[in-house]
Amino acid sequence: MRKSRRGSIKKIIIAALLAVTSLTAFSSCGQKRFSETYTDVFDTVTTFTACCQNKNKFAELSQTVHDELKRIDAIFSIYNEKSSAFAINTEKNAIICDDMYQVLLVSREFYDKTGGKLNIAMGSVLSLWHEFRENGRSLPEKEALMSASAHADMDNLHFTDVNAAISDPDMTLDFGAVAKGYAADAVSRLLDCDFILNIGGNVYAGGHKEGGSKWSVGVENPDGGLLTVLAASDVSVVTSGDYQRYRELNGVRYHHIIDSETLYPSVLYRSVTIIHTSSLIADALSTALFCMDIESGRALALEYGAEALWMKNDGTLVRTDGFANYEK
């Protein structure tokens, strides 16, 4: 009686082990991960990582992603003469596609909600700073900045779902604060596999990585090391920091996030990190909050259901209430 029991126990154990190992082959992302880097979109480095069965499947997937990124970049890049953005800026009147309409809608909403801190109509001011970062010889003149800022009123942008027009001849749009976020969202809509996409610091983590755990996103400490590591799944993480794009002159660093009020790079914080399910919202919020005081920023984050992390100039960190839930 005992012996046959033992024999059947062993059989059960072996059968179960076999069943388990074959079942786990199908558990989420139980495949190999592949990565590809693109340097030809959004003027930054983009890395796409996904778990696929083999290299060929990944190559197909990567091609789809790259094509979509190029498509979005070709709509919002103000330096691409064939882009929708360029057409609006030069002709002041153009037919627009749905992607542009969606971005204009969200940008208008953010302009109102942030008191103009997020302003895609600030192109004339931003181009002065862009020029400085390119040639680095001299800072933009204060007078030039002031007069440029007179042509940054969002109310002079009129748009419908098919058309956009600018009534101020000296005003131009700049989508730097929202394009990457919109692109990441667009890619996430196309894919239903597990992946992580990093467009120059604008991250979207879809699903889980191999082994079933969430994707790990490290937030840099500008002074070295990391501020924190986040566990991300089906969520976007975006950081705006003074260390990402800058030019030094006479020992002073001038970074790329310009405050719409001071017209100079914002010096409130070292970095602001936002977590939200929409990368477009996260991108817009990170730029806006980088130029806002913490209380207003916190309120805005709360309104959108986003979590935020501020790194202040003295190195201390401030979090929204739910931010720590994402930290490892």
Partner: peptide
């Protein structure tokens, strides 16, 4: 570390725990 104009990217690869660093 990225030097985009030259197309140079210096990256640390390996089995580290981070999938992205921003």
């Amino acid at each position: 570390i990225v030097c985009l104009p030259n197309g140079v990217i210096v990256r640390i690869t390996g089995n580290g725990e981070l999938d992205a660093v921003i």
